[in-house]
Every structure is written in C-alpha cells, then in structure tokens.
Amino acid sequence: MEIIVCVKQVPDTTEVKIDPQTNTLIRQGVPSIVNPFDKNALEEALKLKEKHGGQVTVISMGPPQAAEALKECIAMGADEAVLLSDRAFGGADTLATSRTLAAGIKKLGNFDVILCGKQAIDGDTAQVGPELAEHLAISQLTYVSKLDITDGVVRVEREHEEGYEVIETTLPVLISVVKSINEPRYASIKGRMKANRKEVPVWTAADVDVNLDEIGLKGSPTQVRRIFTPQQRVQGEIIQEDTARAAVTRLLTKLNQAKII
C-alpha cells in the first residue's frame, strides 16, 4: 500500500505572535513543531503499513527549516519525505497551498491513501485536506476517529457534534483524522539515527507542474486584511426575585430602560 501523509511545521501555540503590520505570524525566534494532528495522521499511516505493507511518504510545503519536521516524521517511522519549498509558494492561502501539494503528490506517482490531520493549529481552517482531494479527484473522508481498510474497502467512523457516522468508500481516498484516533508513537533511537542520515529532497516550483499564477500569494483569492482581539463582552446580570412574575416584571423594566423593547 502506497501511503502519503501531508504534514505542516507550525509555531508552538504557546509562543505565537502576530506582526501588526503584515497580519502574519512572526516565526523568527519562535519554536516550531510538527502540527499535532498531522502526527496522528502519520501514526495511522504507520499502522496501515504494518498491517498491509508498503511505503509511507511524508510531504510538506514550507520554508527550508520545515525539513526538520519531515526528519522528525522519518524518525517516527516514515520511509521517505519530500519538501516543497520556493519563494513562489510563499504567502499562499489554503487554496494555493492545496494546489501546490497536489502538484507534488502527482509527481510522487501512484498512491492508495492520503492522510492529513483534521486541521493545522496555526490556521484552524480544516480546508487544505478537502481541497487537495478535489484537485486530485478522489474521495474524501474527514474528521475520522476510526479507520479500517480491508480488501480495498475503506470503512471509517466520522465524528460530528451529535455522535459519529459510519461511512464506506473505495481506494484511492484522502482521509483527515482527529486526535482521538490514536496516540502517536515516540521516535526510536534507530529512527533518529536514520533521520539524521536522511537527506530530504527539496522540490521548487520548477520541479512540479504548477501554474505560477495559481500558487503563492498571487494565486490566493483570500488574504488577511486585519487581525484583532474581539471586545470583551460585558458580564450579564442575574435577576433574582421571590416569584417568576416579579422576575419577569423586573426584566421587562430593564429591557425597556435599555430601549431593547
């Protein structure tokens, strides 16, 4: 089974700061980590490999230092890694990012399963996975908390607010997972030694089939105009009276005084 895992290097959320001029994350001097949900996706990929055999390849789009995140994935058990890195990719929104990742995956060749975390903790959009599936014209299953693949049939439990759904589809498929699906393993000493020796190939815009007008900032239909902290709500008042009628009367009086009714 050929499995691809999309990962992202993100700032440690305890250290996030915003540049007030550009409305973008300040990454200089901020510790970076592998997006936690992507570690769950990688763990599930490794479990599929242990059950079905095959290969796990991790892919990421980001600056050169994102190679460290990919090496961490190799230390956990991934076989191969590819970094998409080019100034032309910079400033991308989710749509432009998914186009770039799709181009990289197409260059990798055949695959059976693509696994993603449900969302990145720096953007929290949960859009890249579904958009990627659309670019590749494959089925997608999102918010997956349980996964089984048997004889080419994919069966999942999908979380939602009122419980879960059981859904089936066939390969190839893109699956985004939630935190409850597993507990990511720790990297072994042998895995870290392998990762230290591994050279992560870097593909630029010239190495993949992309339209330069559809990637990076130029290819992003959405842009951040302003980031601000919402005004704190004024704490409400609890009306306490001896009877319900008295409480209602007092409430109506206050609403009238505030010109709400």
Rank of each mutant, 00 (worst) to 15 (best):
E2S: 15
E2M: 08
E2V: 10
I4H: 00
I4V: 15
V7G: 10
V7S: 00
K8Q: 13
Q9T: 01
P11E: 14
T14R: 13
E15A: 14
E15R: 15
E15Q: 15
K17C: 08
D19N: 15
L25W: 12
V30D: 05
V30H: 13
P31R: 09
P31N: 11
N35R: 02
A41W: 05
A41Y: 02
L42N: 00
E43T: 05
A45D: 10
A45T: 03
L46C: 09
L46N: 04
K47D: 11
K47T: 07
K49F: 12
H52E: 08
H52P: 02
G54W: 10
G54E: 15
V58N: 03
G62T: 09
P64G: 08
Q65E: 12
Q65A: 10
A67R: 14
A67V: 12
A67W: 03
A69Y: 07
E72M: 06
E72Y: 14
A75N: 01
A78H: 02
V82A: 00
V82C: 03
L84F: 01
S85H: 11
F89L: 09
F89A: 02
G90A: 15
A92L: 02
A103D: 04
G104M: 12
I105G: 05
K107R: 15
K107M: 05
N110F: 13
D112E: 14
L115M: 06
G117C: 07
K118D: 02
I121P: 09
I121F: 01
D124C: 02
T125L: 04
T125D: 08
Q127Y: 06
L132K: 10
L132R: 09
L132E: 08
A133Y: 00
A133P: 09
A133K: 01
H135T: 05
Y143V: 08
V144W: 00
S145N: 12
D148H: 10
I149L: 03
V154Y: 01
V156C: 02
V156T: 03
E157I: 10
E162Q: 14
G163L: 05
Y164W: 13
E165A: 12
E165P: 04
E165Y: 15
E168Y: 10
E168S: 13
T169C: 09
T170A: 08
T170C: 05
P172L: 11
S176T: 13
V178K: 10
I181Q: 06
I181F: 08
E183K: 12
R185W: 10
I189T: 15
K190W: 11
R192G: 00
N196P: 09
R197H: 05
W203M: 08
A205R: 07
A205G: 04
A206M: 13
E214H: 07
S220W: 10
S220T: 11
S220F: 10
T222H: 05
T222E: 06
Q223C: 13
R226D: 11
I227D: 08
I227G: 09
F228G: 11
T229L: 15
T229M: 13
Q232G: 08
Q232N: 12
Q232C: 05
R233M: 05
V234I: 14
I239M: 02
Q240Y: 12
E241V: 03
E241G: 00
T243W: 07
A246I: 12
L252N: 09
L252S: 14
A258F: 01
K259I: 05
I261H: 11
